[in-house]
Structure formats: structure tokens, C-alpha cells
């Protein structure tokens, strides 16, 4: 994944000069370690700003929603699936997108790295392929990326984009079988009371900044249910029941649409593992309907189609 930057710059410059796209969405190097700035470039001369490394974890599909022009965009496995879903949901036309596919071996989990160093401030983090160099305090460590992968990347089943116009780099091997997230597996052996306690404990510190919602490319409603006042589905104060309701409904709205890109978890300023709920729904969509979102541009989203013999056990 380390050699992508040059090729991305070349492609962006070419597409913008040949006027194949009006703008190009990628990342610019951030001003602090492990966070890069999503940038929209329309001047070919500025294509050299673009970079790619294992800290490009925010989801670029977020920036194509509602655009009227032709867009070049970088897409890893999960982002490409989001783009497909956005096309299915008529948020953008496929013809408007020029997708540069990037096989992805996973992103570095920023908070795990910060936790490792505690109060020692991290000065820089440089991606070196299978490893990355962390400069913290007055020393530099080389860490294995596999040990610090984002939790969603660890269980990623689709590293390679399935939909693209051109692809950069070699394909990455996908796991042979589907891996269920650890916390979801754990919850299955818990009692109702334990699950409720975990849910409450995990989500009640939420400060209701809605970073999880806004980081998600699938959350594009012009008016979110949180902002509706007649009826008011959920209160806007930091009341615990309201906070839990918000998270419950946010997750439910992503049923069959989430690609587990991890942007929500990454965006949370207080490190709540917000994927806990969406992971469950992803696992169920897979187990019950054999469905994974965004894999087939011709297919409708999970809740927008049905089969006559869908699961019916729990209906009396």
C-alpha cells in the first residue's frame, strides 16, 4: 500500500488534465499524526498534494453524495461497496464516478497506538508497508501493522474493490471464510441483562456530537430522525435513554447498508466502539439472507427487496 501515492498523483493529474473528471477526491497529508485531510482537488497542478497511507481511514464516499459533476475518487474495498450502495440508492449516478480502486491491507487503529504510548506524545507515524514507524518522545519504534490494525480491518472480508474503472496495485488476499466480530460473538453467550448492561455502559458516555452519524457515507438523510420534532422520536439532551435510542436507531438505519468501513468508530472523539451495533446487523444480514451490502451494483439493498421464502419463523 506504500507505493500508491505516486500512482494516485499520476492518475489524478491525467484525469483532471484530460477533463475526464471535474474533481478528484483523495487525501492530503494531515497536520497531526495518523489523521489525513480528505481533499477535493480540481486543479491538476494540485494533484501532487495527494497521498495515500494506512491512515486514510475516513470514508471518501461521504463526499460524493449529491454532487452534480463528474468525480474521480479513490476507493478501497469498503469505500467501493459504499459507492455501489449510493448508486443503488440514487445518491449519485455511476456515470458520474471514475473510481480508482485501491486494494487495501487495512488501516492503522489510531487509538490503539495512542493507548500504547499513553502520556508520551506521538510526533509522527510513517507507513512502511507491513510495518510502521512511530516517533514518540525521543525514540522511534517500528511496529507491526498487523498488531495495530483497526478492528474492522482485522475482520475485513473484501480488501479489494469490486467496482472500479482502473485499479492501482496488486490484489490483497481475502480471508476464506467470514469472520464474526469478537464482541458480537461474545454477546451471543451473554444473558439479556448482561447485554443490556454492556449496551448501557458502552454507549452512555456519548456526547451526542453525531460524529459517528456524519462520518458515515450512508447517513445522508436531509433531516435526520434526531432533528425531527413532530413527532420527536428522540430527545436531544444528554438523557441516557435518548442517547441509547439514538444509537439504536442509527444502527438500525444502517441494516444491510453498512460496509463496516469503521469511519464511525474512527470519528468518535471519545472512542466509543460504535460498530458494536452495526456489526450485529451485518452478521445477521449475512447469516439470515446471505447478504453483504454493495457487492453487486445490479442488486437492490437488503431492505429494498424480498424473497417469498424469507425467514418467517418468528411470525405466529
Amino acid at each position: 500500500m506504500t507505493g500508491y501515492t505516486e500512482k494516485i498523483r499520476e492518475a489524478a493529474k491525467r484525469l483532471l488534465t484530460e477533463k475526464k473528471v471535474d474533481c478528484f477526491i483523495g487525501f492530503r497529508k494531515g497536520s497531526v499524526p495518523m489523521v489525513n485531510y480528505p481533499v477535493i482537488v480540481s486543479d491538476p497542478a494540485k494533484a501532487d498534494e495527494l497521498i495515500w497511507d494506512a491512515n486514510c481511514a475516513m470514508n471518501l464516499a461521504n463526499y460524493v453524495i449529491g454532487r452534480k459533476d463528474k468525480v474521480g475518487i479513490l476507493a478501497t474495498g469498503c469505500v467501493a461497496r459504499n459507492l455501489v450502495t449510493l448508486v443503488q440508492e440514487n445518491q449519485i449516478k455511476r456515470e458520474q464516478l471514475y473510481i480508482i480502486g485501491l486494494p487495501c491491507s487495512g488501516m492503522i487503529d489510531k487509538s490503539q497506538v495512542i493507548d500504547k504510548y499513553g502520556d508520551v506524545e506521538i510526533v509522527s507515524v510513517i507507513d512502511k508497508g507491513d510495518t510502521f514507524a512511530v516517533e514518540a518522545g525521543d525514540k522511534t519504534d517500528v511496529l507491526k501493522k498487523a498488531d495495530f490494525l483497526s478492528r474492522n480491518c482485522k475482520i475485513c472480508a473484501h480488501h479489494n474493490p469490486i467496482e472500479y474503472d482502473e485499479i492501482i496495485g496488486d490484489k490483497v488476499a481475502d480471508p476464506e471464510t467470514y469472520i464474526k466480530p469478537e464482541d458480537v460473538k461474545k454477546s451471543e453467550s451473554m444473558s439479556d441483562a448482561e447485554r443490556w448492561e454492556f449496551f448501557e455502559k458502552t454507549f452512555s458516555p456519548c456526547i451526542r456530537c453525531y460524529a459517528c452519524r456524519n462520518a458515515c457515507p450512508m447517513c445522508y438523510c436531509p433531516t435526520c430522525f434526531v432533528d425531527e420534532s413532530r413527532p420527536q422520536w428522540v430527545g436531544k439532551s444528554s438523557d441516557e435513554t435518548d442517547t441509547l435510542t439514538f444509537h439504536f436507531l442509527r444502527a438500525l438505519h444502517l441494516a444491510g447498508r453498512c460496509t463496516d468501513c469503521g469511519a464511525c468508530e474512527r470519528a468518535c472523539p471519545i472512542d466509543i466502539p460504535v460498530r458494536y451495533l452495526t456489526s450485529r446487523l451485518n452478521a445477521d444480514a449475512k447469516e439470515i439472507y446471505g447478504f453483504e451490502s454493495g457487492l453487486d451494483p445490479k442488486m437492490r439493498p437488503l431492505l429494498d427487496h424480498y424473497k417469498l421464502d424469507d425467514l418467517n419463523d418468528f411470525f405466529k
Binding site: 485531510y37 456530537c209 453525531y210 460524529a211 456524519n214 470519528a267 472523539p269
Partner: peptide, 16 residues
């Protein structure tokens, strides 16, 4: 435009 392009309009900055 350039400053705002990347913004996702969450309230993390203002709430912290």
C-alpha cells in the same frame, strides 16, 4: 471551500 471540503459537519470540535 478548501477549509470546509473535508468537514463532515459533526459537532466533535464544538462539543469538546
Amino acid at each position: 471551500e478548501d477549509i470546509a471540503n473535508g468537514c463532515i459537519n459533526c459537532g466533535a470540535c464544538t462539543f469538546l
